[in-house]
């Protein structure tokens, strides 16, 4: 492309107002959920598989993220029966770090904002054609060659705007990997967080037992909740990195003021 023609890229559409508003509500919600979720995890940084799991049972994974990790002092374990392998009980003798009083309530408050805004976003996205036009890969776009090109471009940290947009996408400003990632976050990761979150609720699982059952129990759902959280943190870090690399000021202005 000859110099000067980069000015032609204004075919790049502006972010619609509802996209900008929902983006920032959801972004605030995700960050709040991540921070409070970490606070909640610090109270019991052990993960399990199955219905039940606690300090007197083996963990699938222990995370060294708070002093509770050492799961401190316990009085002597007392078995409930004389049978071999009987369940035991023991009295905890140490004060754990526990900020769940505000942590949990803030987590669920943020979840309300995320769920309500998410539903509005998906509904508006479908009705307006935003998801179909900007996020769904086009016919013929999903080929190994184009995927490879896009991947190489990302690894070279090519600025898509400096190179005149990705060849395959025409007017659509998003690359193939970018589209797939956004779709994965909107339609897989965030719904998975909501489902695994509800699978930990005693009232919701009483009404809908399959929510916990399909993960093999509430503790399994909690473990999946943690790993999807890790994936989302990775997404946010890469997303912010890409925003910085492609012009932080301009991108932030586009997502707030819309120009």
């Amino acid at each position: 492309m000859p110099p000067g023609q980069t000015q032609q890229i204004p075919s790049r559409p502006r972010h619609a107002r509802w996209v900008r508003i929902s983006h920032w509500i959801i972004a605030t919600g995700v960050v709040t959920l991540a921070v409070t979720g970490f606070v909640i995890l610090m109270a019991h940084p052990r993960l399990y598989w199955g219905a039940a799991g606690n300090d007197l049972m083996p963990a699938l994974l222990e995370l060294p993220i708070s002093r509770n990790h050492h799961h401190g002092g316990w009085e002597r374990s007392i078995p409930f029966s004389t049978a071999a392998g009987s369940a035991v009980s023991a009295v905890r003798t140490y004060d754990i770090l526990n900020e769940n009083s505000w942590g949990r309530s803030l987590h669920f408050l943020a979840a309300w904002f995320l769920v309500v805004t998410g539903i509005v976003y998906v509904a508006a996205g479908i009705c307006s054609g935003h998801i179909r036009r900007h996020l769904l890969p086009r016919a013929g776009e999903f080929t190994p060659r184009l995927l490879w090109q896009d991947l190489v471009g990302h690894l070279r940290l090519d600025n898509p705007l400096a190179t005149g947009g990705r060849p395959s996408t025409g007017a659509a400003p998003y690359g193939l990997i970018q589209k797939s990632t956004y779709l994965g976050v909107v339609f897989l990761a965030l719904p998975m967080m909501i489902i695994t979150g509800m699978a930990m609720s005693p009232a919701i699982t009483a009404a809908f037992p399959f929510l916990a059952g399909m993960f093999g129990g509430s503790q399994s759902a909690r473990t999946v909740h943690f790993f999807v959280f890790a994936v989302l943190v990775l997404f946010v870090l890469v997303h912010v990195l890409m925003v910085i690399l492609s012009g932080f000021k301009r991108q932030i202005r586009a997502m707030t003021l819309g120009n």
């Binding site: 109270a43 769940n100 005693p202």
Partner: peptide, 13 residues
């Protein structure tokens, strides 16, 4: 039934 503690653990009794 399952006892679910706000801390994050649970137990069946």
């Amino acid at each position: 039934t399952k006892h679910t503690c706000e801390e994050g653990w649970s137990a069946i009794a």
